[in-house]
Design a binder for these strands. Structure first.
Length: 372
DNA sequence: AAACTTCTCAACCGCTTGCAT
DNA sequence: TATGCAAGCGGTTGAGAAGTT
């Protein structure tokens, strides 16, 4: 095709619109409706091409346009829709009342895209940028799924519940990739991480059951399998998060004594040899990892204590940091993890790991059949 | 205060799609 | 079926604003 642009006609104005032009356009459309854009400018007394008029109207003058900054909820919606629809700005705009495709596109390019990049998330694929994040420790058991040993299967199964608890994955990622920012924790990651994950998983599972949290809807599973995203391809078993017998056992018990069960969950699991752990508080641990000042490290040392290697982590005295009930309340406040905002303000590459679970969170929020 | 850089976003360009003939 | 037209879409541009040196 390649028709000549209509604005090449001589005498047609280009560039910014004046208030007078806006008034003419608004007045005409109010009186006659949009009609034929090609004939509209002539009828409205505008020296513009129809295309320019249409753009001005749809992107700026339309009365139902919402001006001002995007809300946190709008931003979340854009990210979620973009992960499904890609750069289909008009399709995204259709689901954001009052926002235009142009506005959303601009906001994506100037704000969201940059933020995702800072967080180590590829804004195109919404997956962690593997060039920035060392995921080898997480991917190793996943890759082993293709040629698994029994030990590989056990390790992979232990990771299943991460699908429902993005906080845990972030913590895991933080510990696994801990660099200079968290030297003390880095010394213990290999020994403690699997245990932390399992203990916290059991605790979270008990809490989830206590709160009657419903499992993801069937269409979510279908959607995730259809997506072919990295997570679904690499770790298909993650979809069936609650199939872990250990978790099921915890869930069944939690039905009867939810709080006690949750509190006991982390204590019932044996820490690695040489470690004593009183309790786990994922948000607190995250804060320590991300802001490892002296007081935080001291807190870390009272939360996780090594009797075999205490060069970096403190005295070896182990004390609870908070009551089980308090921790339960805290740990259940951020189940709807997102890329950013108040609930996940730490803009580090550690957040990237959370993106691996994106489709799973997303599918719980949206009726994905709308987009298929 | 001036010069320079970076950011924002309205508007444009060129291509695709859908429809009528 | 081929062609032409109108509308819509996504990528890009550039002027002005805001921030920095």
């Amino acid at each position: 095709m390649g028709r000549a642009p209509c604005c090449e006609k001589s005498g047609l104005k280009k560039g910014p619109w004046t208030p007078e032009e806006d008034e003419k356009l608004i007045a005409y459309i109010k009186k006659h409706g949009q009609g034929n854009w090609r004939t509209l400018p002539k009828n409205a007394g505008l020296a513009r091409c129809g295309k320019s008029c249409r753009l001005r109207w749809t992107n700026y003058l339309r009365p139902d346009i919402k001006r001002g900054r995007f809300s946190f909820e709008e931003e979340e919606t854009i990210i979620q829709l973009h992960s499904i629809l890609g750069n289909k700005w008009s399709a995204i705009a259709a689901r954001l009342p009052g926002r235009t495709d142009n506005e959303i596109k601009n906001y994506w390019n100037t704000h969201i895209r940059k933020r995702l990049l800072r967080m180590g998330i590829d804004p195109v694929t919404h997956a962690p940028r593997l060039d920035l994040l060392d995921l080898s420790a997480l991917l190793k058991p996943a890759a082993a799924a293709y040629y698994p040993t029994q030990a590989d299967l056990d390790t992979l199964r232990a990771l299943e519940p991460l699908a429902n608890y993005p906080d845990l994955l972030r913590l895991a990622s933080t510990l696994l990739s801990s660099g200079p920012a968290a030297p003390a924790i880095g010394d213990h990651q290999n020994q403690l991480l699997p245990w932390i994950l399992q203990a916290q998983m059991a605790q979270q599972a008990a809490v989830a059951m206590a709160q009657q949290v419903a499992p993801p809807p069937p269409q979510a599973e279908h959607f995730m399998q259809q997506q072919g995203g990295a997570t679904c391809q690499i770790m298909p078993d993650l979809v069936h998060a609650n199939s872990n017998p250990t978790v099921q056992q915890q869930l069944a018990a939690a039905q009867h004594q939810p709080q006690d069960m949750a509190a006991a969950a982390c204590h019932s699991m044996q820490p690695p040899s040489g470690y004593e752990v009183d309790s786990l508080d994922v948000p607190a641990l995250m804060q320590m990892v991300q802001q490892p000042d002296a007081s935080n490290l001291q807190q870390w040392s009272s939360t996780v204590t090594s009797s075999s290697n205490n060069n970096n982590v403190g005295s070896g005295v182990s004390t609870p940091s908070s009551s089980p009930v308090a921790r339960l309340n805290h740990s259940t406040t951020s189940t709807a993890t997102t890329y950013g905002g108040a609930g996940a303000s730490a803009s580090t590459s550690n957040d990237a790991a959370a993106a691996a679970l994106f489709y799973m969170q997303l599918s719980e929020l949206l009726d994905v059949s709308d987009y298929m």
